[in-house]
Structure formats: C-alpha cells, structure tokens
Design a protein around this nucleic acid. Structure first.
Lengths: 140, 140
DNA sequence: ATCGTTATTGCGACAAATTTGCATTAACTT
DNA sequence: AAGTTAATGCAAATTTGTCGCAATAACGAT
C-alpha cells in the first residue's frame, strides 16, 4: 500500500509546511485555492500523521489541528513541545521549549498534548487598546 | 444572577468530588442513580467550571472531562497539573506534579491543558498478559 | 504508449459531542 | 403566599470527524 502523489496531497502538504502555525481542516480548506472535499482533506491529514510528516494537536476547543514537524528530522520525531492556542484569533502555534512530564511507574506514555490557551501577542495588545471592543470572543 | 441549589446540582457535584478521576458527561450520567437530562448535565458542569468548583480537561479524544480541584483551596486554584488519559479504559486522571510552561513575552496565558495518553498501570499490565486480546481499542 | 491494479477522491450518510431555543418547573426573596 | 427568574427537560440544531461506495486517476508492468 504505497502512497501516490496527487495535486490535493501536494497542495495540503505545501500549505502546512509553509504555515507557521497548526491548521484545522477548516483552515486548510479556506486557504486552498481549489476546492478539496472535506473528507479528503481529513484523509490526507491523517495519512500525513501516519507517515510522520505532520503532527496532530488537540486544541483547547477539542478540535484537531495539524502542524509540520518543526525541528524534526526524518529520523528523529519529537512532538513534546507545547502549543499556544489563542482564544481570540484561534491561531495554534508550536512553542519551542520541550516539556518533560513524568508519569507513574507502570504507565505507558504514547502521546503528549500540551496546550496553553489565552491571548497571543497580537490579540493581547489589541485587547489592551480596545478593552470593550466587540470583535473578539467572550473574553472579559 | 445567583445560583440556586437543586438536587441535580448536588448529585453531580458530589459525584465529581468523590471521583478520583475526571468524568465526561456520559460518565456522570452513567453513575447517577437518577436520570438527569443530558443538556442539564452539561449546563451544570459548565456552571461548576465558571464558578471554579471543577476544572475542565480536554482529552486526547477531544472530549471534555471534568475533575474536582484536588489540592485547590477555595482561595488558590492551580490547574497546572498534567492528566493521564488511558486509551484503553478511558480513565482521565490528574497527576500531581505541576508543570511550568514558559510562553513568549506579550502573551497572556489563561488555561493550561496537559494530557499524556497511553496505557495506565492496570491496562498496561493487562496488555502484557494478553497482547492479542480483543477487548481493548486499537492498540498495537 | 497502453493496460491493469488499487490508492485516492467526492459525495452522501452517519455518528458522536455539545449547544441552543423554548416552554415548564421550582428556588429563593420579599 | 406571591413574584421573580434560575434551572430543567425536550427537541432540534451545530459542529467535527468518519465511513461506505462508486468513480477517478497514479504508477508500475507490459
């Protein structure tokens, strides 16, 4: 079951590799010039995860976001970095500093998902300037 | 808009405070003697989160789990501990050791969600004993 | 260059998790 | 005891992600 190259696959991969933050299926669809079916995008993304090209992040909202493996070589994959999920602009970005969680003896760790949510730099300063503006979502 | 005491609310709160792991809406419903409507359970849980009685954990599956604030006093709330989400038995438990994530300057952290998933102690040893058993979900 | 195999796609349907509108009920205040 | 309105139940809607299936197209073999 070897992989085949298709325009859709290349387009999605390119998008994710260019992006400086993790993308949801919806974000991918929005940024593509051509229309690709929703299920197809999901399937492409899941295949990328299987193949180790991108990693999956579960956002604070429970949705899946996909990001390139920055700092990963084809040989070494480390996805133990935190993510910052901005509750205003919805950007999910990878932070660089790895985290180390110790788990109880006898447990087997498989995946790690670390997400800090709040306001990113841009939205944080927007917020200072316009504390009572209506544009943003549910932040006091 | 002050809160009112109802039997449903007490029942759910009691359940969560007794539980040693985080519970989803479904788990709460299953463990209640009386039937409480699904939306009502969600609403009760969300109110508890608002009021700082319990904290919300987003599992590896993107679902919401709710846990008592263990180690929290009414004055000091710290939810910077990791969670372990067992992919076999689906238990979500709070680990004690707090984590510290540093975020870029100008960012504002609001929530932290740290989840390690894999096999908990019980399921890990089950797994050793019966590597090819059929009962568990999608683990190689 | 053509053919055959089968990975990939699109589409519709489905499933699960969570939220919302609305009428009804019931806590708590006065 | 009466009034106000938070809380509830129910149904419907939303959202996110998956699945089956038929049609398409990539790519190795001829």
């Amino acid at each position: 079951m070897s992989r085949r190259n298709t325009a859709s696959k290349s387009a999605v991969l390119h998008l994710i590799q260019q992006s400086d933050c993790a993308l949801s299926q919806e974000m991918v669809a929005d940024r593509l010039r051509t229309d690709i079916n929703r299920s197809t995008i999901y399937r492409i993304l899941n295949r990328f995860v299987e193949d180790g090209l991108v990693h999956r992040v579960v956002g604070e909202d429970g949705r899946q976001y996909f990001a390139r493996c920055s700092g990963c070589t084809p040989e070494v994959h480390r996805h133990d970095h935190p993510h910052f999920h901005c509750t205003a602009c919805e950007r999910v970005e990878c932070l660089s500093e790895p985290v180390n969680i110790s788990i109880p003896a006898g447990y087997r760790a498989q995946f790690l998902n670390v997400t800090v949510s709040g306001l990113c730099g841009d939205c944080s300063s927007d917020h200072e300037k316009a504390p009572s503006a209506g544009g943003r979502k549910g932040l006091s």
